[in-house]
Design a binder for these strands. Structure first.
Lengths: 223, 223
DNA sequence: TCTCTGACTTTACGGTGTACAGTTCCGGCA
DNA sequence: TGCCGGAACTGTACACCGTAAAGTCAGAGA
């Protein structure tokens, strides 16, 4: 007979880092709503309450998970050209969101940001300032870029179907309860555009990103 | 003694519309996580399970709530100038988000959009097409605008403080656990910019919106 | 009068976050 | 050697959640 004490002795002890790593992995696969303290404990071979020794509550854990995602994002260096730095950062953020879809919507609205998050913001502002943006212009540029980046993630990447689904089929299902000719423009849009092969989210993202970078560049040196 | 039957006789019966109206109101005040079927039932003087006669499940109710928010947004008319129509729509969306902060993050990612949502998309595409945008350009413009609008709402309007809070105080609290000189650019940003009196979210929104509208206009008729 | 049905209630179940009180192990000290 | 304090975890319990399933009951129609 193996007692719980024996089990405890044989396993590697919990750390915040290990818990966060497993929690992120779990959320990547099943979404955040599938991440419960009990299931997470089970995966770590521990009772759920053990987690509360390392985290104040679930929100504390989620904060740490979000900060881990920030930690995966490439930081712009202060002496990089602002445009390439901002472009690279935007793409890096998008990639992190693609890996961790559950984090979309949490990255910019948490009450207690972690060190990676703060460092990230610090580096972005630092790069813009070093490139000659004054504070007001840096704020405008940052606001514009982040709104676009997170908005794109929200509106395009958290859609209720993934890459393996047939877009046309899903759209069909959405429109099915309504009269066939109720939304002619929408139907045309779907049939002529969205379900065309080769419509690529990444291309769409970079297209808009470059439009915005162009626009920011122009506000700096009006032609 | 008043039986439950007597209570039932004296009250106006539930309708989907009335339930949604009260539910939206409730979520406006306490957020979506404060909206439970039991509390909603209590407010409607009904048992929680009565709601399941009118809605398949909670997700069905939330779908209806989101569609009610879409119903509050002004529709662009097909013959309006695209730029004024898009500008007005963007502001109308932003205002709806301000009234219903719980809806941010739900508007564009529901599996079963309601009629108001579909009508909204149809009208936006219809306006752009009538203004001479081809399908690909309409898609680019729509993607860019929606990403910005919803991203702005997500990053700026769902922050963990509202208009009555002292921004400087909240920011101070966020940075407090870390060394004072860890994030110099961020600190400069907060002190020099964000907490300046007169920094207005609405101004920031419209500034970025006009930058994007300019950029879209330019992609139509490259100078 | 009887039955049917729409609208609601009652009861119950499994799952959730987490408060609070044990339990066990280990390192340092008498 | 004996003890003891704290770190790390377990056990139990509670209030609350969404919702399945069955029961109730007033009024409409035959």
């Amino acid at each position: 007979m193996t007692t719980s004490a024996e089990r405890a002795r044989e396993r590697t002890p919990l750390t915040r880092e290990r818990v966060v790593r497993v929690a992120v992995h779990r959320a990547d696969e099943g979404g955040l709503e599938a991440l419960t303290m009990r299931k997470l404990g089970r995966e770590l071979e521990v009772e759920a309450m053990a987690l509360y020794y390392h985290f104040a509550n679930k929100s504390d854990l989620v904060d740490a998970m979000v900060d881990a995602v920030f930690g995966e994002i490439e930081l712009p260096r202060p002496d990089d050209d602002w445009r390439t730095a901002m472009r690279q950062r935007a793409i890096s953020v998008r990639e992190a969101m693609a890996r961790h879809r559950w984090a979309i919507g949490l990255m910019e609205s948490r009450a207690s940001p972690g060190p990676a998050s703060l460092l990230h913001h610090d580096a972005v502002i630092g790069n813009l300032r070093a490139s000659g943006f004054d504070m007001a212009m840096a704020a405008h540029a940052y606001s514009l870029l982040d709104s676009y980046i997170y908005g794109f993630a929200l509106t395009k990447m958290s859609l209720p179907f993934d890459a393996t689904d047939d877009v046309a089929e899903v759209a069909q299902g959405m429109l099915e309860p309504f009269p066939v000719d109720a939304y002619p423009n929408l139907v045309a849009f779907i049939t002529e555009h969205a379900m065309k092969p080769g419509y690529d989210l990444e291309d769409e993202f970079e297209y808009g990103l470059d439009v915005i970078l162009d626009a920011i560049e122009r506000t700096r040196s009006p032609s």
